[in-house]
Design a protein around this nucleic acid. Structure first.
Lengths: 215, 215
DNA sequence: CGATTCGGAGAACAGGTGTTTACTGAGTGA
DNA sequence: TCACTCAGTAAACACCTGTTCTCCGAATCG
């Protein structure tokens, strides 16, 4: 165990993280705008006034939380997808990976789903920005023709690529929300959601294969 | 003008509606769980104590709001869809109708989108229930083969019908939310959303046409 | 007409809220 | 080592919250 005294930036980063974690935990049953500054500091074990050393207000903490959640998730998904060989059964694997991520990080996904159209506009904007990055990533992957046996995405015009990647990203977000609505200790309910989501994704890609490509 | 004194149930129903409207108006920039009972009564012009004559708490008001919003919307959509002759261009017409509804009733749709995954579980459940009814309606229409030139929905198994109607309902909710995110006085932004949504719906139906039907 | 119902008013309750202020004391760079 | 930086403390500020109580007065009913 390393018990050396923490350097000052380390200590600051640590309590900042404690604040973020406390806020995330409080948001399991409520939304960001209904959580008070004092409530967060109480859960984090610091004084209300000390909050201002880290964030100007609760909304800014929310934005930071978005960047942390979706930033790390994007990195995770990137590495996972790079490891996917084109010979895999892409659809069911993708949904399974999503389900696993949601299961391992319920709080993060719940936060995103809850605040995506929630009451704090700065947080909404931050989420929309990150989801746009997800869609851009996905469009690149589609253009790279990773979906073996699928349509020839590389011949598509850019607008159509964005159209379908937005559709898929939205479907993923909705799937995550549906998984969260299912009770965590009911594997059969989650399994039904996963099965339906897989069929829906398959249907979407079936439609994409038939989508008229323009020269 | 009818200035006769209102009967007692009429008066009660009127202030109840005033409460619902006041709450809906307050939710333009914030979510339900962050709105206080006193705030609602202040906006409605009544005493805090009088609130309890209508609802036991704010959450129950939220549930009533869901029923009112989605109940009337369901009726509207039903009549609209019954009036659609199969010869119309169904897809673009559907999206246009949705866009018009959203434009005319921004507050209602914003409420639904915001609270669908929001912090009040009773409201979430009420919304999920109503959306399920929407999906059931849609499944019936699909089975009735109203989509001319489309796939033979009447030969599908029930599970697949639900799967695709859920997908379409979700797409509609997301489209409504996207329209709300676009500034109300920017017709070109809304037009882009409408165009993209139409193409996505077309792609989904294209996939449905190819979906393997089982005997 | 008289008795009763009941939506709403008004005041009081204990407790929570965000923000500012002056202060402490440990880590830090010259 | 010594002056300094700065994360965190403690207390006070004015204000807002949900809930309960008693009371009023007009619509209602026998």
């Amino acid at each position: 165990m390393n018990h050396r005294p923490l350097t000052r930036p380390e200590q600051k980063a640590r309590t900042r993280q404690t604040l973020l974690d406390a806020a995330l935990a409080l948001m399991e049953h409520r939304s960001l705008s209904s959580i008070g500054l004092r409530e967060i500091t109480r859960a984090a074990g610091i004084t209300p006034a000390a909050f201002y050393r880290h964030f100007p207000d609760v909304d800014s903490l929310g934005v930071a939380l978005v960047d942390q959640c979706l930033g790390s998730l994007r990195a995770t998904i990137r590495t996972v997808r790079d490891g996917l060989s084109p010979s895999d059964e892409v659809i069911s694997r993708s949904i399974d990976i999503l389900a696993r991520q949601v299961h391992d990080d319920r709080a993060h996904f719940r936060f995103i789903a809850r605040e995506r159209h929630g009451g704090v506009s700065a947080v909404r904007a931050a989420i929309a920005e990150q989801l746009d990055l997800f869609a851009a990533d996905l469009a690149v992957d589609l253009a790279a023709d990773k979906m073996v046996g699928g349509p020839r995405f590389d011949r598509w015009i850019v607008a159509d690529l964005r159209m379908i990647s937005n559709l898929i990203v939205n479907h993923m977000v909705w799937t995550a929300a549906a998984l969260l609505d299912a009770p965590p200790d009911a594997p059969e309910a989650a399994a039904r959601v996963i099965d339906a989501a897989g069929r829906q994704l398959r249907l979407i890609l079936l439609g994409a294969r038939q989508w008229p490509t323009e020269p």
